[in-house]
């Protein structure tokens, strides 16, 4: 198992005592694609980021077990974590506009990521950057390598971001809503690209999203989170057989083209789901 999470809880101090954002989550991940789905505030991003120890400083983390490839993340120091972050596990965020450096060209940023882990010459790095841009299926990698982030479209920027994360040959990618800032046509391309890369390189992928059908379409397994808990874990193919009323409610309340509903069913939140 690459990642093992057992009974993870994350709390934030507030004036009225600690408020739990993640309550007793357990997950296991091998070389597969895991989707974590939930609404805003369900704790899905925090859970995934805890693996890289990328949490806000005031967060209080506790777990019976939280390991990445056998390394105890909870007790690991910053130096160990730096060896994991970026090098062995990459993080792709929602909006490439905010995660790319605006004053460096795309090529320079990828080359820098590559050099930081591979220790090659400038020239090798530049060649590697163009090779990576080609891998993320950018048609004209030389031109894109010389472009600044503001000259790139959203989909292009996200490809550059993925190329950067692939530079050190990571074993795992965490994609936090990687396509929610993108158009539907681009979204499908990016997801297909990630699916393909993950399969070819034998990487693990954690895809975090609020979009249940989308995630189940691209992942092997889906964990549905609600209010800091995993309420249901399913194989993606078995989505239609979901039993938890929350999962069912999420599926039902979406308008669809193929099954018109005169009125959308509204999700009735049961307080029992919290226990």
């Amino acid at each position: 198992m690459l990642v093992e999470i057992d009974n993870l809880s994350i709390a934030f101090p507030s004036p009225t005592g600690d408020s739990l954002a993640v309550r007793g989550v357990s997950l296991k991940l091998g070389a597969e694609k895991l989707g974590i789905v939930g609404e805003s505030g369900s704790g899905k991003s925090l859970t995934a980021r805890s693996i890289l120890k990328l949490l806000p400083p005031q967060a209080k983390v506790a777990a019976d077990r939280l390991t990445f490839d056998g390394i105890d993340v909870l007790r690991a120091g910053e130096a160990t974590m730096r060896g994991i972050r970026g090098r062995r596990a990459g993080l792709i965020m929602q909006d490439p506009k905010f995660s790319l450096n605006p004053v460096m060209t795309a090529g320079e940023q990828i080359a820098e990521a590559w050099r930081a882990h591979k220790k090659g010459s400038q020239r090798q790095a530049r060649a590697a950057a163009i090779e990576l841009l080609d891998q993320v299926r950018i048609r004209d990698p030389k031109r894109v390598a010389g472009a600044y982030p503001h000259e790139l479209s959203g989909g292009m920027g996200q490809r550059v971001m993925i190329a950067m994360m692939l530079a050190p040959d990571p074993e795992m990618l965490i994609a936090d809503e990687p396509t929610s800032a993108l158009d539907a046509t681009v979204q499908a391309e990016i997801l297909r690209l990630m699916e393909d890369l993950v399969a070819r390189r034998g990487m693990a992928l954690i895809l975090i999203s609020h979009d249940l059908p989308l995630v189940s379409h691209f992942c092997d397994r889906v964990a549905v989170m609600y209010a800091g808990r995993v309420v249901e874990e399913l194989s993606a193919a078995g989505l239609a057989q979901a039993t938890h009323p929350y999962t069912r409610g999420l599926l039902d309340c979406m308008p669809t083209l193929s099954h018109p509903k005169p009125r959308l069913p509204v999700l009735a939140r049961d307080p029992a789901w919290l226990t």
């Binding site: 979009d211 999420l250 308008p255 959308l264 069913p265 509204v266 999700l267």
Partner: peptide, 10 residues
Amino acid sequence: DVSVQAEVLN
């Protein structure tokens, strides 16, 4: 969120 979207659409 989708559940809220349903309420607003209704």
